[in-house]
Design a binder for these strands. Structure first.
Lengths: 344, 344
DNA sequence: TTGTAGGCGTTATCAT
DNA sequence: ATGATAACGCCTACAA
């Protein structure tokens, strides 16, 4: 019809509807004290003129930028980020918020400056912090000091005043270990995750609890430090496999490291799962696509990110922020990379 | 020192430096006609007060949002997106631009409305369009009509007035096919990519050209349609492998489909590369981590995204936008998923 | 080289 | 329930 780029303002709408701009503002912002009749007239004008409020003017006047920041570690390996993006975006968009990304490369000695600049420069109202950002005390400390609300997706101890999205890592790790034990394994290697991630400790704790519960001896030589990346998994698994008495199963704290473990096994001519069972954590996209498909633990990452964003937006809008009553549930996904130790 | 959140405005700086706000504005925006002496005095005040210009006020007044949009297909499989994000962000940030994400699920009958809304609502100044968004005529048409500058990362024919980032897909595909031919393969399967992606056609063209050039017969039964996702690759490869005279090598138009092909081969008990060579395209993160590591083609995606963002920002700033003189170079990466047909 | 006035489109205040 | 008017912080004209 009219492809002109002439922008229609609140004045145009007011004139068209025969009211004042303030009334238009009230209607557009769902404020009370407008007669139903008037409201409809304004709405009509809004639609007819295709009125879109000017975000900059809104922000300047009302102090609301409607922008949410997402600070994340820019590590290639963390495949869960896509789910985080999608989950957060899925909530922000319909709520009228924009999502601004801020990747950070860790360790970052200037992290404080970077975040401070991002927060002020990009004028974000709130920030979503997926792991491991929510695990870093300096980050949450700074945000607290700056009085910028944030939602941390991380398995730390929840603070009732802050938004914290949890899942039962520990229980899932326990279940996975138990599965291997039930399959007859009693020499189960464990590759730990990056020590700065809260999840690493939870997962290790679940492993130890399962061993203890089922009377399987804990062997320090079967526990290796990894850092959540493929290489560290490959190396850690290699070390264990080269032991005189290697494990018959390896539990890696994430899928990337599990893929590294499979790689290491293959290099040594070992059949997986025939000679070595391997399990991971996260149910990354590719965990079902490598061979053999990986037994792993699925976290509802997208849902967790959605919840984080939704609670954050609620908080920004002054609504009561009720933390979810229980942690999100992880689910063990059994595929073909694990098998009973002595098949019948 | 002073953790107060009182925001310092241009007036504060002007007062502190003993000049008018206009002079401060000139200094902050690097405009000419300021005495060096004055400039320094203002800069000092800026630093002392930690003055940060208010982006909303700037935008409202000056019509510059300093926001760039990135519209992409939200398909789980397109692993190159991370590189696109990183490349674009790496340029935007130092240039003072923010990057706003807009995932779209294709096919989207309301794509026009969605983009229109994104463009106006999010007040983006320009838009980056990675494949396949730049391939969709309705998208580029709309942007053209709305007079929003965009940079398309896609292998279509370049328009001298528009920003177009290319790479030599065709040549790379030709080289990859040639490699297989040199290895003695003469029954080489090809899994095409999604027909809506310009790259699909380029890659197929390179394959055909290589066959022709080396006198290898073109066999339509060895060419299957895929859609760039794992499943379609698995199915397409499966069909070919179940043929009475299956190929000895399969070239997939991307790594996800190549991974599917490996999966299909494994299911049939075929040794890769002993009984079947498989090659992909993209050098996705995981292509070096599956077993066997994938022979593939590496595109400099992050660089291409960087260039797209840089050219776009140049254009927005009124600088001369010179297209790069040549397409970006792809590189064949030889790994262990391909082998000579009859090893010595 | 520097400063003054007006406007950008909204929300907030305070009348009516 | 509605409206006039003043912020909000900056930039663009236009003066000086």
């Amino acid at each position: 019809m009219n492809p002109e780029r002439a922008k229609v303002t609140i004045f145009d709408v007011a004139e068209h509807a025969g009211v004042s701009i303030k009334t238009v503002s009230r209607v557009v912002n769902n404020e009370p004290n407008v007669r139903e009749n008037t409201r409809e007239r304004v709405m009509l004008a809004v639609r007819e003129l295709r009125y879109q409020p000017n975000a900059a003017a809104r922000e300047l006047s009302g102090k609301r930028s409607r922008i949410i920041g997402l600070i994340y570690e820019n590590a290639e390996e963390f495949s869960y980020l896509n789910d985080v993006f999608n989950g957060a975006l899925g909530i922000c968009e319909p709520a009228g918020y924009s999502l601004l990304l801020r990747p950070l490369t860790l360790p970052d000695p200037e992290i404080i400056d970077h975040i401070r600049q991002f927060a002020t420069n990009a004028r974000v109202e709130g920030i979503v912090l997926p792991a491991p950002m929510g695990d870093l005390p300096e980050v949450s400390g700074l945000l607290r000091e700056m009085r910028i609300p944030f939602a941390a997706i991380t398995p730390r101890e929840p603070d009732p005043d802050e938004i914290n999205i949890l899942c039962n890592d520990e229980a899932a790790s326990h279940a996975l270990t138990e599965l291997l034990i039930h399959q007859g394994h009693d020499a189960i290697g464990f590759i730990k995750g990056h020590p700065d991630h809260g999840a690493s400790h939870k997962r290790f704790a679940g492993y130890r609890r399962a061993l203890k519960q089922h009377g399987v001896a804990y062997a320090p030589r079967l526990v290796r430090q990894g850092y959540f990346d493929f290489e560290s998994g490959r190396i850690a698994a290699g070390r264990m496999l080269d032991l005189p008495d290697p494990p018959s199963a390896v539990l890696a704290s994430n899928d990337d490291m599990a893929a590294g473990a499979i790689f290491a096994a293959r290099k040594r001519g070992l059949n997986v799962p025939g000679e070595l069972s391997i399990a991971g954590f996260d149910d990354t996209r590719f965990s079902s696509r490598i061979w053999p498909p990986l037994t792993t633990v699925r976290q509802p990452i997208a849902q967790m990110a959605e919840t984080a964003a939704a609670l954050l937006i609620d908080k920004l809008n002054g609504h009561s922020t009720e933390a979810p009553d229980a942690p999100f549930e992880c689910e063990v996904v059994i595929r073909e990379s694990t098998a009973p130790l002595h098949p019948a």
